[in-house]
């Protein structure tokens, strides 16, 4: 069983420290929820785990089964089993969904593939893609469209889940995959995630809402405040936060809350 281990992680964006010592361990098969107010560092953690070049790891480590990811680029991390479902998926004009995914799937499943080497056989790939699209209730016509170009918000998120389904990572980070969707779309996405969760995948669900968590009940809920995980509980904690907000969390961690206030003040200046 694989383990994603985050130890005392410090991350800066353009010299500004955002994460200040995050500790988190996720095993395959587990569902973790990460909650916290805006600006607490949730998306920063997601980007830093995936390897965005703008997010600099200044201390601590990220490991999968003892292999340190700190110095690896996003492509190498994805081949080790890391996946990020984007909050705002990117459009790549002129690149067809099927072509993009065929490259992606081939690389992730044959991590040692060199550029220019053969891709996954077309027939096999097409069949698998068609099957997965059917499960997600997507028109087959989607495969020929240009990646995310002219997609609605719901279509983009569904596209992320389709990629998740095709790439079958060891660890998936869902960065507000439920935001901006109507309840029908949330249902489709949630069911999709639910179908994919299992012993082979560890999931970190970043969310403001509770809806995604109703379908995908977390064993662990973490609360982030001012760049640290200040509390960890079970699904009940997520429910409480959703119902009551973060006031009580701030009361329980006055020093971190004070830091949060200072940062806000600094940001305004």
């Amino acid at each position: 069983m694989s383990v994603l281990k985050i130890t005392d992680l410090h991350v800066s964006v353009e010299e500004t420290p955002i994460l200040k010592g995050v500790n988190l361990e996720i095993s395959q098969g587990e569902i973790h929820a990460l909650m916290g107010p805006n600006g607490s560092g949730k998306s920063t953690l997601a980007y830093a785990l995936a390897g965005h070049p703008k997010y600099t790891i200044t201390g601590g480590s990220v490991e999968i089964d003892g292999t340190e990811l700190n110095e690896l680029d996003a492509n190498e991390r994805s081949r080790l089993g890391m996946f990020l479902a984007f909050q705002y998926p990117v459009t790549i004009p002129g690149v067809r969904v099927a072509d993009f995914l065929r490259h992606a799937v081939t690389n992730v499943r044959s991590p040692d593939r060199k550029e220019g080497e053969g891709l996954m056989p077309m027939r096999e790939f097409r069949k698998e893609l068609r099957d997965q699209m059917e499960e997600l209730d997507m028109e087959t016509e989607f495969a020929r469209r240009y990646l995310n170009e002219g997609f609605s918000g719901g279509e983009k998120k569904r596209m992320e889940i389709l990629q998740l389904a095709m790439l079958r990572p060891k660890f998936a980070i869902l960065d507000e995959t439920d935001s901006g969707l109507d309840s029908d779309a949330v249902k489709v996405v949630s069911e999709g995630v639910n179908r994919l969760c299992g012993p082979g995948m560890g999931v970190l669900i970043i969310t403001h809402h509770e809806r995604l968590l109703e379908f995908n009940k977390p064993q662990f809920t973490h609360v982030m405040l001012a760049g640290r995980i200040v509390e960890t509980g079970d699904a009940q904690l997520a429910h409480e936060l959703h119902a009551n907000g973060y006031t009580s969390v701030r009361e329980r961690h006055p020093e971190v809350a004070a830091e949060e206030t200072q940062e806000e003040a600094a940001a305004v200046v």
Binding site: H52, A74, N75, S78, P93, D99, L101, A104, V108, Y146
Partner: peptide, 28 residues
Amino acid sequence: VDQVFYAMCRGLTEYEAMHMIVQGFFQT
């Protein structure tokens, strides 16, 4: 950079990502 990063998150190398983006640009 976000286009390149997105593609790299899906296992494409930086070159493959650039290649796809350039080819996509010429596609129309």
